[in-house]
């Protein structure tokens, strides 16, 4: 169908605790091509952990195990920490949830973007500056020169998130992992940020992993959706067919949402079946 950028096979994330080992992610497999892949689930379902594990950002005592996490056939699990630094940012980038916590509050936006750029490229300051301005314009920031001089607290949430995306895109990664990139934003701004990400994915042929708890948003924005529950993938479906999803968990989540077009006195309450968390993970791999 399409060329595979990332192949994750049998991924486990474990945290040892006093009560025994806690499995945050349990045997997840999926592939990512040049597409927008959504991962949805409740808090604690392991969706963010999956994103972090791909970049090997889980620190001891956390344990990551996988048959393979292959980026273009290159197994990331076998790489040394030094080699991973060349992957992070360069090949796979990540956008975090809240720009307030991801930007350095005492550095100007410009200085941070230039620093990120020069980390990966040997250039002089003037070139880096020009590149940074160009990137800010690519994410629809109008007066880029002013923003370069501004500090993070002078930005609104939407602007901050766009700056984060600009910073992630400078090294021209093949894969962007967006962990709830719009949860901290208002609906009107949310749309703008999504449009920018969408445009970039299409133009540059990137693969996007979009982690979110918002089913409607994912159905609208992504191509394919993985639904996670208790560290496993319970269902994989086309985003456009999410409303016809079959698994009772997905159905339960969809029915729990209030809808403007179908008013009801009471919302349906999700009845959890203990069998969901023991059933083996569904594979999200495309052969």
């Amino acid at each position: 169908m399409m060329d595979t950028l990332l192949d994750v096979e049998d991924l486990w994330v474990r945290f040892p605790s006093r009560q025994g080992v806690f499995d945050a992610v349990r045997g997840v497999s999926f592939t990512l091509g040049r597409e927008r892949l959504g991962i949805v689930g409740e808090s604690g379902s392991g969706k963010s952990m999956t994103g972090r594990a791909i970049l090997r950002l889980i620190r001891p005592p956390g344990i990551v195990e996988a048959k393979q996490i292959a980026l273009n056939g290159d197994n990331l699990m076998e790489k040394s920490e030094k080699d991973m630094r060349a992957v992070r940012g360069q090949k796979i980038s990540m956008v975090m949830q809240d720009p307030k916590f991801s930007l350095n509050p005492v550095m100007t936006i410009g200085a941070q973007i230039i620093e990120a750029y020069r980390q990966h490229n040997r250039t002089n300051h003037a070139d880096a500056y020009a590149k940074a301005v160009e990137m800010l314009q690519a994410v629809s920031i109008r007066d880029a020169d002013r923003v370069m001089r501004a500090y993070p607290h002078e930005m609104s949430g939407g602007m901050g998130q766009r700056v984060m995306i600009a910073m992630m895109l400078i090294p021209n990664p093949q894969i962007l992992i967006a962990d709830e990139p719009t949860s901290a934003l208002d609906v009107s701004v949310q749309r703008q940020v999504l449009d920018i990400m969408d445009g970039l994915v299409k133009e540059r042929g990137m693969g996007l992993i979009f982690i979110s708890h918002d089913l409607n948003l994912v159905a609208d924005f992504c191509d394919r959706v993985l639904i996670m529950y208790a560290g496993r993938i319970v269902e994989v479906c086309e985003a456009s067919k999410l409303s016809q999803a079959k698994h009772p968990y997905t159905r339960g989540l969809l029915n729990a949402l209030p809808r403007l077009d179908a008013p009801r006195d009471h919302l349906e309450v999700l009845q959890r079946d203990p069998a969901w968390s023991t059933a083996p993970s569904v594979s999200g791999r495309v052969a």
Partner: peptide
Amino acid sequence: LDVSVQGE
């Protein structure tokens, strides 16, 4: 809150 808990 999560959507399922929001409903409750």
